[in-house]
Design a binder for these strands. Structure first.
Length: 435
RNA sequence: GGAGGGAUGACAGAGCGGACGAAUGUACCGGUCUUGAAAACCGGCGUGGGCUUGCCCACCGUGGGUUCAAAUCCCACUCCCUCCGCCA
């Protein structure tokens, strides 16, 4: 949620910044008008309530002095006031709810570094990385045997079975088999093990309450993108960010304890409602995938470093796996609702000849903290909102695809990077499954 | 699923219709004392909101209700604990 006090203080600056994200000044003026109305109603209601409290005190005094006539008279006055207060309170609630609903739909104010743009086509590429680049090697020339899409390799080697996945849960629910399943498990463990120096590993629930989804900004705006279990009032989490951000919801953290860092591998569920018919082949876009998330609560001063740390860790994974990737500075049109600044990592997938998003590293400033009410107490005793920062390290379905394509050999087998050997029982070669 | 008990400030724990935003203890932050520390003593110490910045309002698990007045009474829900049943 944006800062209403700041909007009041500098309406033009906030309007201008949000205009870059397509929020009209009219919408913001509506909010400002509602705020003025809300405060006026609030003052009237509070005045009435103060008066009722005072009269109640008088009734108490009168009763104690056995002055029942006065008590009865004052009670009567207070009762009438109570009627008015009820009406005033209803008005406050009505306008307050309306104001809050509108505020919940407003995206975060973008950081100055965020470039203007309409959609993903306007994201700005910051740099690329490929194996050997540091030694002056040119962009890799992928051989013919690497130019095979992963869904074909998956079928050929018996490690990815999209048909069975579709049979069980519908299309775009992948089913990994044999060495393919083990590779997925290896990637998750490989990443988690590398984060444990500074990040506490969690294994949160895969479902979340509505208020948990509100905290990150996924609700109310993106309800259509999420799977809902209506009978139980639960939502399937679209990312580990959802439970991690709510770990300390409603709490005040000692400044000395910051940054508080968590990592977790979770299943991520996405309806992909707005992407019907796009990128439906293989693992390009799926309804369920595993992802390791890195997360931090921090002070505003720590946010820059916390963001850089997560980005660095995500890059180190891709480098350790020897995969070609690039960094994108997301433009205003592609930025997530709650984010103020996001760097995407895209891995190069030679078989499909495309860059695939495998991580988003985002800084939310106090937008999520305000919604989730996560604050910290400074050394001087002041209470401030924390900043939240998170990023994927990494989304495995697409990394799986890139790994399998990149390391496909001329003989059709896949020779996986040695860093994964400890997680594969030492066997880094995937051969056709015979059984 | 059944029966009982509980939820109050950082923590422990009183309060069970009126002067209670809430006793007391611990922790914490000052100060006195001390060569220093400890102890002792003194003072402070919840969060959010509104405006006339000194006051007012809200908050005692959550949501309703009763009342002139609710932490306190009533109803529903959630969570935690104990016991029984069932179960991966």
């Amino acid at each position: 949620m944006i800062n209403l006090a700041q909007l009041r203080r500098e309406p033009e600056a906030v309007k201008a910044a949000l205009a870059r994200r397509g929020v009209s000044a009219v919408t913001m003026d509506e909010i400002l008008a509602l705020d003025v109305e809300h405060r006026a109603l609030l003052q009237e209601d509070e005045r009435l309530r103060a008066e009722i409290k005072e009269l109640s005190r008088q009734v108490g005094d009168a009763r104690r002095n056995k002055d029942n006539d006065t008590a009865e008279t004052v009670s009567q006055t207070s009762r009438e006031l109570g009627e008015r207060e009820r009406t005033a309170n209803d008005a406050v609630e009505r306008v307050g709810t309306n104001l809050n609903d509108k505020l919940l739909m407003i995206p975060n104010v973008p950081d100055p570094r965020v470039p203007d743009g309409l959609d993903e086509g306007d994201n700005v590429e910051l740099r690329q990385w490929w194996a050997g680049m540091d030694e002056g090697a040119p962009f890799p020339t992928y051989a013919e045997h690497q130019r095979v899409p992963h869904w074909e390799i998956g079928t050929e080697l018996g490690i990815l079975d999209m048909e069975s996945g579709a049979k069980l849960a519908g299309s775009m629910f992948p089913l990994y088999r044999g060495a393919g399943s083990r590779l997925l498990r290896a990637l998750g463990s490989f990443s988690l093990d590398r984060q444990l120096d500074d990040y506490e590993e969690l294994r949160p629930p895969s479902f979340a309450l509505t208020e948990t989804m509100m905290a990150t900004g996924h609700l109310p705006k993106s309800a259509d993108d999420m799977y809902a279990i209506e009978r139980d009032g639960l939502w399937a989490i679209p990312t580990g960010e959802v439970p991690l951000t709510s770990m300390r919801r409603g709490e005040i953290i000692d400044e000395a304890a910051l940054p508080v860092r968590f990592t977790a591998q979770t299943a991520c569920f996405r309806r992909e409602a707005g992407a019907a018919g796009k990128d439906t082949r293989g693992l390009l876009r799926v309804h369920e995938f595993d992802k390791v998330e890195l997360f931090a609560y921090c002070t505003p001063d720590q946010a820059e470093d916390a963001h850089a740390d997560i980005l660095r860790r995500a890059e180190e994974l891709l480098q350790a796996l020897g995969l070609t990737y690039r960094l994108l500075n997301l433009c205003t049109g592609d930025l997530g609702t709650a984010s103020a600044y996001t760097i995407d990592l895209e891995v190069f997938s030679p078989g499909v000849d495309r860059w695939l998003e495998v991580s988003s590293v985002s800084w939310f400033r106090d937008y999520q903290a305000r919604r989730a009410s996560v604050r910290y107490r400074t050394a001087e005793g002041k209470v401030e909102l924390v900043h939240t920062v998170n990023g994927s390290a990494l989304g495995w379905s697409r990394v799986w695809a890139a790994v399998v394509e990149t390391y496909r050999q001329a003989d059709g087998t896949v020779k996986l990077p040695d860093v994964l050997a400890p997680y594969l029982g030492g066997d880094t070669t995937i051969r056709p499954r015979t059984s």
